[in-house]
Design a protein around this nucleic acid. Structure first.
Lengths: 226, 226
DNA sequence: GACGAATGCGAGCAATCACTCGTAATCTCG
DNA sequence: CGAGATTACGAGTGATTGCTCGCATTCGTC
């Protein structure tokens, strides 16, 4: 678990809120043994579980450490503070989700309809969220504090761009502002339906995914006609 | 402020998790002076502000008391604990929202289209949420702890019923399970779009409300055709 | 084997926060 | 007025929790 698209990126704990250009003097490669990498993966896996169960605020660092079978002190050897754990998880989630959304960029409207494109893309995305329920805790809902929520901003920006591009492909005659507004609404609606998909029993997932697709297609058709 | 549909109900702090049948012995009318009622309103108003700013978990009872210009001790004279404050607020919100949704029950499909019904109903609902941003904190998103979230369950159930009834009016030929699924999806999508509407600048609200309406209508038309 | 670095531990510290309590001011009503 | 109830205060308390620190163990490398 916890190795989905790219493995080594997981442990990259970038806790520095430093200058845009990294100073070579402060550069610390932070040598790490294979054991340490494994611990980090364990800790992130455990953090995902506890975050999903208790939400961000109610999750204690001791609980994460205990779930990972590690002492609190060891946890703080790899993460400077609680936020950094959430940040590392968020980065991992963002990278994977962005990869899952990438196929939208290479579509040919004359070959594939919007409906078909969604039909093949939505499944894996939904599946990822069901496997990583903490993703919702960190990205949707204002449960996490501001500095953690900030980590979702780049992902949201990229996702919004991808949706806008997708809508542009299938509605080239619509004004740009309208397309962007449409993308904003679809992204928001997606966030709203996600919890449904994650908490639903396995057998209802296909039907709910279909509904999400219908929601998107129905709204888009309305974008075209109005 | 904080007097929307029904005033006196605000102060009814029902913190007892007692037996289903109330024992007459424990019955305490809890006599209260006009000053006390005013304090309760002040405290709930302040709680709404602080909840909206900081979220449920990060909000301290001392902060609520300070915002209301009241000492912590006074706060605990009217509310047994932090959850009770959220509960009272949630009840207030639920009552008002339910009242705003009530018009859906008395529609004649042959006279008013679904689009028209939404056009007149969505505005006030959106406005209420913009005036009471803490409503989102307490109802959508998993930020509040379980026992607080439970307070939304009755409202959600009623709302789901209302939406289902509405869909039944305009799609009488659809199977009941499909209508209920549609209501579930629409409610979830509504929750997702709400933050957009609450945080948007005033001048964008009409356009966004229109998009929400289009989202609903587009999805519903798709429910009918598929 | 030996040395330094990395890993690991867990009791405990300091800060935060929900909540209490003793006391005093203010109100209601006869 | 005066007695009892209600309102108000705010320093303090107990519990929680993010995080530290001193020390023991294991690893990589020569």
């Amino acid at each position: 678990m916890l190795a989905f698209v790219n493995g080594p990126t997981i442990g990259k704990v970038t806790a520095e809120t430093s200058s845009p250009v990294e100073p070579p003097a402060t550069e610390r490669p932070k040598r790490r043994q294979a054991r340490g990498e494994r611990r980090i993966a364990q800790l992130l896996e455990a953090a995902g579980q506890v975050f999903a169960e208790s939400g961000y605020a109610a999750t204690t660092t001791n609980a994460i450490a205990a779930r990972a079978g590690v002492s609190p002190g060891s946890l703080y050897q790899y993460f400077p503070n609680k936020d950094a754990i959430a940040a590392a998880l968020a980065e991992y989630y963002a990278d994977n989700l962005d990869a899952l959304l990438a196929p939208f960029a290479v579509l040919d409207p004359s070959v594939v309809t919007l409906e078909q494109a969604l039909a093949v893309s939505l499944g894996p995305i939904v599946e990822f969220h069901r496997v990583n329920p903490a993703c919702i805790v960190l990205f949707v809902g204002g449960s996490a504090p501001g500095h953690v929520m900030d980590l979702q901003a780049p992902l949201m920006a990229r996702t919004h761009q991808r949706i806008t591009a997708l809508l542009t492909l299938y509605g080239p005659d619509l004004p740009a502002t309208r397309l962007e507004l449409g993308a904003t609404v679809m992204l928001a609606a997606y966030k709203g339906v996600l919890p449904l998909l994650v908490e639903a029993p396995e057998e209802q997932v296909p039907a709910l995914t279909q509904q999400l697709q219908d929601l998107f297609v129905g709204y888009f058709e309305r974008l075209l006609t109005v």
